[in-house]
């Protein structure tokens, strides 16, 4: 959703409040940089998209401002037009900007070899190829065509999957059907616990 001028005025009123609260803790940490985020949120320099909070299932609406220059988020706040939260967010939702802009996110795919004592950086293509071989080996060497009663069950009892309620619907569905096509039956996730 791109925001038109009228909406933007409405949004910027809320943004002003959010900025007044200092984005909950900005300034509390010595690392905080003095960036003019209000200026960066001008529609000339940023785009506005709507999203939904990634934490609890109240499903609060968000407005995300992304810098057109860096393609990174400059602000995330409650969507004033969302009928459930009407612009409000709790402490977690109000911190989503820091989830994305976070130097604790690793910068590469990581691989730990058997018995190794550390991870090493690898490419995604290398990892996916190796995972695919692992899947095929575990599946093909142990595939259960028939159960102990001689009934056809066509399943893979040696690979399990856990996750995830943190995925989007389209991903959940894709993952769920993909795992079944591989023959997995040990498929579980957060809803079980």
């Amino acid at each position: 959703m791109h925001t038109n001028r009228r909406n933007f005025l409405k949004l910027s009123a809320t943004a002003a409040v959010a900025t007044a609260f200092g984005g909950l803790g900005l300034g509390c940490t010595p690392k905080a940089e003095a960036v003019d985020r209000a200026a960066a949120m001008d529609p000339k320099w940023s785009k506005q998209t709507t999203s939904i909070c990634c934490y609890c299932a109240v499903g609060c609406g968000l407005v995300v401002n992304t810098s057109l220059k860096t393609k990174r988020a400059v602000n995330v706040e409650g969507d004033p037009d969302h009928p459930i939260n009407e612009g409000a967010l709790c402490a977690k939702g109000a911190s989503i900007w820091q989830l994305a802009e976070n130097d604790r996110r690793p910068d590469s795919v990581l691989y730990r070899a058997p018995y190794a004592n550390k991870f090493k950086k690898v490419s995604l293509a290398w990892a996916l190829e190796k995972i695919a071989h692992n899947v095929k080996k575990a599946r093909d060497e142990n595939f259960t065509h028939l159960n102990s009663r001689g009934q056809a069950v066509n399943r893979c009892d040696t690979i399990a999957s856990l996750g995830s309620a943190a995925l989007d619907n389209e991903e959940c569905w894709a993952y769920s059907t993909m795992l079944r096509s591989l023959g997995l039956v040990y498929v579980e996730h957060q809803a079980r616990i």
């Binding site: 939904i52 909070c53 990634c54 934490y55 609890c56 299932a57 499903g59 996750g163 995830s164 309620a165 943190a166 995925l167 989007d168 619907n169 959940c172 569905w173 993952y175 769920s176 059907t177 079944r180 039956v185 040990y186 498929v187 579980e188 996730h189 957060q190 809803a191 079980r192």
Partner: peptide
């Protein structure tokens, strides 16, 4: 408790149900 635990359950990410 999770943003999409409703959807992940609807889509059968559990041993006992398909989507």
């Amino acid at each position: 408790g999770e943003a999409n635990v409703q959807g992940s359950t609807d889509h059968g990410l559990l041993y006992h149900i398909l989507p």
